[in-house]
Amino acid sequence: MAWTWFHRLGSSPWVYRFSGTLLRFLLPLAIAMIVLGCIWGIAFTPPDFRQGNSYRIIYIHVPVSVVSLAGYYVMAVAGAVSLIWRLKVADMAMRVAAPIGAVLTFLALLTGAVWGKPTWGTFWVWDARITSMVVLLFLYLGVFALYEAFDNKTLASKACAILSLVGTVNIPIIYKSVDWWYSLHQPASIKFTGESTIDPSMLYPLLWMIVAVYLLYACLLLLGLRVTLLESEAKTAWARKVVMEVK
């Protein structure tokens, strides 16, 4: 009985309906949280005593970076599930996760570069953290491109799943890069174990934004999943029913 939820995840109409209901309140919540978090971070937090106001970029740079790493695990786990259990929905989730992750990684690199100019004096430096993030971007793009490169889509899915699983080796490297190869990029200020080295007046808006971007990521994943589901199952009875409900 406890495992019935897992079987439901394999049922396209159920996933389609459930994600629709979920999105109805999750999406407005995520958007509201992001807008409020931006206002909080831009105007209502104190400036950093060393970096001044440029540090305010942290409220978008850290959340998009964190979620771009977590998103890779989402993609890899979905790939593993589709490899092992041949779950169609997992395969779609993997494919949907790739472009979203690529955009978030790109945002992390871009905001990092713009933050680097006033702080480090340069937009770009080939240090370990930044280079491994570039590798992450190419892994995301690789999964996306690999799927498009195959005519046989079953084979394409398998290849993508394997590529995304192999690529997970990069995630701990990115995470630990600032400690292993210390250069310009600062190490983490929020720690899971031990005292964080960030003031609560900056920590709370930052945590707020991390939660907000996580929520939005979930929404984007569900939105993409719905489009892919309806597209690939357009000829089924449930899809017809969904389509006929449109005015």
């Binding site: 992001i34 931006c38 831009i42 001044g52 106001n53 305010r56 978008i60 871009l110 713009v114 100019k117």
Partner: peptide, 18 residues
């Protein structure tokens, strides 16, 4: 923002647009 305005506003604008 004491000179940092262009950097900060650019980041937030790109973030929200994307």
């Amino acid at each position: 923002m004491a000179g940092h305005g262009p950097y900060v506003w650019f980041c937030y604008a790109v973030f929200l647009c994307v």
